[in-house]
């Protein structure tokens, strides 16, 4: 019997695939649809302190080797979302509640507010490149640690996972600082900063001009980040970035991830992607005589 289950700081996932934040997760119904389609966990679109429109379009495009987005964190703001929160709290499968803010207080206030809905896991999006100061807290060890510590203080028993940016020189040191500040796990990575210009229009394609790259183009960047972080921390890692099939997922797990974030692949393969990846992981494990995901985590380091 092959055991595909894994766990993130004590929260059990039936398989290692996790719907990443900002992909589909705008409504509880879509989160449920991800679970119906075999996701092991699902992350909601990051929620923030205030009502925000986000950026004008184009805000998401396929540039040929991946996606580039500058959606700009639109959302109703946490105080306008009780109906959604209520629905989310009824879901039995592990839902990851992603939050963002531009001040430490924002993270703390949102955490205090949502905690009454008993989320199992809160993810701190400190790594969005598409909003003024969106990456503020992932740029250096001290800020990342401060926000993590402040949230942990009010989070009661909820698992806290900072999500880190690859747009830094020392991601593994930042991860280590988060661990010391009480993070229960790390998610790496958020998008990689980039730009695409349409040479006929002679203008950047995104309205926000710059954006965050995701999808196949960033996979080696994500694998490198996870590999480095694994060497530096003991807490589990969610490896995110460029995974579109089972082999990619296994690569990330071998680099040190306990579970894998799936974002852009939903565009490439539709929502069936979770089931497909799970089957492909299983096949590979069968062929290579592994019985449990846990046997593969980090084996590229040995």
């Amino acid at each position: 019997m092959i055991d595909l289950s894994t766990s993130i700081a004590g929260v059990k996932l039936k398989n290692p695939t996790i719907l990443s934040s900002g992909i589909l997760g705008t409504s509880p119904e879509l989160i449920k649809r991800a679970f119906e389609n075999n996701a092991g966990a699902a992350t909601i679109k990051s929620i923030g302190p205030k009502l925000r429109d986000g950026n004008n379009n184009p805000s998401v495009i396929n540039f040929g080797h991946g996606l580039l987005n500058a959606v700009g964190l639109p959302g109703p703001g946490y105080k306008n979302m009780d109906v959604e929160f209520n629905e989310l709290s009824k879901i039995k499968d592990p839902v990851i509640w992603s939050i963002y803010g531009s001040k430490i207080e924002d993270f703390v206030n949102i955490t205090k507010y949502i905690i009454k809905y008993k989320p199992k896991i809160i993810e701190l999006n400190i790594s969005c490149p598409n909003k003024e100061n969106g990456m503020l807290f992932s740029q250096d060890k001290k800020s990342a640690a401060n926000v993590t510590r402040s949230v942990k203080e009010v989070a009661e028993k909820t698992i806290i996972i900072p999500k880190l940016s690859p747009n830094v020189a020392n991601i593994s040191e930042i991860a280590y600082a988060c661990e010391k500040a009480g993070a229960d796990a790390i998610n790496a990575i958020n998008t990689v900063q980039g730009m695409v210009i349409n040479i006929d229009a002679k203008k950047p394609v995104l309205y926000y001009k710059k954006g965050g790259m995701s999808g196949p183009a960033i996979r080696p960047i994500a694998v490198r980040c996870v590999y480095d972080i694994y060497e530096n921390v003991k807490i589990p890692i969610i490896g995110t970035g460029g995974i579109t099939n089972g082999r990619d997922a296994i690569e990330m797990i071998q680099a040190g991830a306990s579970a894998v974030g799936i974002g852009s692949a939903v565009y490439y393969h539709g929502i069936n992607v979770f089931g497909n990846i799970v089957n492909e992981i299983k096949e590979w494990m069968q062929e290579n005589s592994y019985n449990s995901i846990k046997e593969i985590i980090g084996i590229a380091h040995e």
């Binding site: 900002g22 589909l24 939903v266």
Partner: peptide
């Protein structure tokens, strides 16, 4: 209201449909 037009951002959700 649409952003990506390609089924990932969730802006155009109507229930669990995009």
């Amino acid at each position: 209201f649409m952003r990506c037009g390609i089924g990932i951002c969730g802006s155009c959700a109507c229930g669990d449909k995009l």
